[in-house]
Design a protein around this nucleic acid. Structure first.
Length: 605
RNA sequence: GCCAGCGUAGCUCAGUGGUAGAGCAGCGGUUUCGUAAACCGUCGGUCAAGAGUUCGACUCUCUUCGCUGGCUCCA
């Protein structure tokens, strides 16, 4: 029996396709029925487009998370105004309740059938089977494995969302087709809920919150993808970096500082000018020598390693740096803080002996997960990225390294996916990706083997045998890039930062000017205890001050009036709207200190 | 970089070829107030930039820049 292949693809920056094989239709569960319906909706959309453009060339039309898309080659550009018309036509087709008819034809018959469809012909030539499955509904025939719903009337709630250009077969060497994205659900209610979810996600967008909460800017005058942190963003960054440094020192790392630019010779030696040039900023010429702004920190750390002869006794060396790098990214890919051109990697390089590699890998993954867990991301996805085509190093070393990485992931009991060919040119890696508010995945943590640089820089250490040996090298970035991590952090908590890194931890709200003196006293006392606190001394009513604090998502509001001034107390309102019993200033100070020191995410002591 | 859309005051947004608007924020007053918006007044714009069409352009056309969603690429 021919297996039924249901194709899934996640709507993410790392689009991967997953195939499930089924022997019969009986065990297709509800989700798969939904998949099937979405896929059929794509066909109906294709028929609608065909009715508008009889010469339309059809690409592929798979399902994706929450919906589907279809790629078309059309005589003119689509605009969003075309979508209602296509939707209306689709509704007619659904209403007509046309049957989906499955047929098996030979390749030759298929070639004739799709004679005017160059993309379909290309796909036919690549099929291994002699028999080709086609599906017909109404006036539309598509080459497709299916399965499909029996009648178009089974299609329930759908909506066309957007149009986009998409290269045929995902290669920029090919022509760009026009893609229409749509969503489809079993009920209108589910569809409406989905749309509401998208609206909610837009409210969490770090670009919007960055403005509302005054955290950062990306001024056009400076240039695309170059970030300025304003005081509140700067506070957050400093606080988290302080934590980062403390944890690194406590876990056997040393911290390096290195320059932002280096001579072209350095980048030739490292191989960056060979492998990475198109991502580097153009050189600047000083005293007739070319300098490049750094896209990575590794060569600098290697030179620090090579500053003298290293003994096996001093390995492993774990050297970290908050190193700001600059990479040329194509203008179309820049996206708020999540994809920028200048960013600070929380980088580290681990140099060790081959014998230490295994335990070092385990340790670096443990440490990374420990750091990520501090920030309470609900879920992240782990990928093992393997050897790409243009790789350096012998295949056997890659095999061994990949086996080792897999062992480390298994040891941590993490679910992971393999990203075939997704490794760096110099070695395989473990990547962790975190979703933004809209469910797009962004790589944060990366742990990478490097077979390249120790060779290129001829790194050595003196072994117990008195001979020179080549050290192993691991690159790791934990948050990945501070900018991206910050963006994800903002979206994760919707700007309501946990008290330990909230830029303003408490705001003091005097009820009237008469209580300003007491407010100042409270402020001074809390500041002396290292708490980030401010007094709202504006000429506003208390209600307005509470509102301002709510909008700024400040964790604690300390209302002080007649009673509080008299009794040395504070009336604490939480950002959640909850009111705590009046407590003494001492008590509040002790409680907030405890929350900050333990980095708890909840507000209530 | 490619495809499509968008760009009006610090922010959110009205304004379809005929004198640039509102709310909020800011500033100046008045008010001294008990848990999400007191009241009055006032400042603020080369309508992203440039070119063109027109008697006249925020509005129509073209170019450039930026942003948004995709594609490709990536931390």
């Amino acid at each position: 029996m021919i297996g039924i292949i249901v194709k899934l693809a996640s709507r993410s920056s790392t689009r991967r396709e997953v195939f499930f094989l089924r022997d019969n239709m009986d065990d297709i569960d509800k989700d798969e029925k939904l998949e099937m319906m979405r896929h059929s909706t794509a066909h109906v959309m294709a028929e609608a487009v065909q009715s508008m453009f009889p010469d339309a060339k059809f690409g592929i039309g798979p399902t994706i998370e929450d919906g589907f898309y279809y790629d078309f080659g059309l005589p003119r550009s689509l605009t969003p105004e075309d979508l209602p018309g296509i939707e209306a036509k689709m509704k007619e087709i659904v209403k007509a309740n046309l049957p989906f008819i499955k047929e098996m034809v030979t390749k030759d018959e298929a070639r004739k059938l799709f004679a005017k469809q160059p993309y379909k012909l290309e796909l036919i030539e690549e099929l291994r089977e002699e028999q080709v499955t086609i599906y017909k509904q109404g006036n539309f025939t598509d080459m497709c494995r299916g399965p499909h719903v029996k009648y178009t009337g089974s299609i329930k709630a759908f909506k066309l969302m957007s149009i986009a250009g998409a290269y045929w077969r995902g290669s920029e060497k090919n022509t760009m087709l026009q893609r229409i994205y749509g969503i489809a659900f079993s009920t209108q209610k589910e569809l409406d809920e989905y749309l509401a979810k998208i609206e909610e996600a837009k409210r969490r967008d770090h670009r919007k919150l960055g403005k509302d909460l005054d955290l950062f800017l990306i001024p056009e005058e400076i240039g695309g993808g170059l970030v300025v942190y304003t005081p509140k963003g700067g506070r957050i960054r400093t606080t988290i970096e302080d934590f980062w440094r403390k944890e690194h020192f406590a876990n056997g790392y040393e911290i390096l500082y290195t320059p932002h630019i280096g001579l072209s010779k350095l980048w030739e030696t490292s191989g960056h000018l060979g492998f990475y040039r198109e991502n580097m900023y153009s050189p600047m010429s000083i005293d007739e020598q070319d300098y490049y702004i750094k896209p990575m920190n590794c060569p600098f750390h290697i030179l620090a390693y090579k500053s003298r002869i290293r003994s096996y006794r001093e390995l492993p060396l774990r050297w970290a740096e908050l190193g700001t790098v600059y990479r040329y990214e194509m203008s179309g890919v820049l996206s708020g803080l999540l994809r920028v051109r200048g960013f600070t990697q929380d980088d580290a390089h681990i140099f060790c002996t081959p014998e230490q590699m295994s335990s070092e890998l385990s340790e670096v993954l443990r440490f990374s997960l420990h750091m990520l867990d501090t920030f309470g991301f609900p879920k992240y996805k782990v990928y093992l990225s393997t050897r790409p085509h243009d790789a350096v190093g012998e295949p056997q070393r890659w095999e061994d390294a990949q086996t080792e990485l897999r062992r480390v992931i298994d040891e941590s009991k993490l679910d992971y996916k393999v990203d075939e060919g997704g490794g760096a040119f110099y070695g395989p890696k473990i990547d962790i990706k975190i979703e933004d508010a809209l469910g797009r995945e962004w790589q944060t943590t990366t742990i990478q083997f490097d077979f390249n640089l120790p060779e290129r820089f001829d790194m050595t250490y003196m072994g117990a045998d008195g001979k020179e040996h080549r050290p192993y090298m691991i690159h790791r970035a934990l948050f990945g890039a501070w900018e991206r991590f910050f963006g994800l952090l903002i979206e994760q908590c919707a700007g309501a930062f946990p008290v330990w890194y909230a830029p303003v931890q408490a705001t003091i709200i005097p009820i009237s000017d008469q209580h300003l003196n007491y407010a100042r006293k409270v402020e001074a006392e809390l500041k002396a205890a290292g708490i980030r606190v401010e007094v709202n001394d504006s000429n506003e009513r208390m209600n307005q001050k509470v509102r301002e604090a709510q909008l700024q998502k400040i964790p604690y509001m300390l209302v002080v009036g007649e009673k509080e001034s008299a009794n040395n107390t504070v009336a604490v309102r939480l950002r959640s709207g909850e009111q705590l019993p009046v407590m003494s200033l001492e008590e509040f100070k002790a409680k907030i200190k405890q929350m900050i020191d333990n980095r708890v995410n909840e507000l209530k002591p």
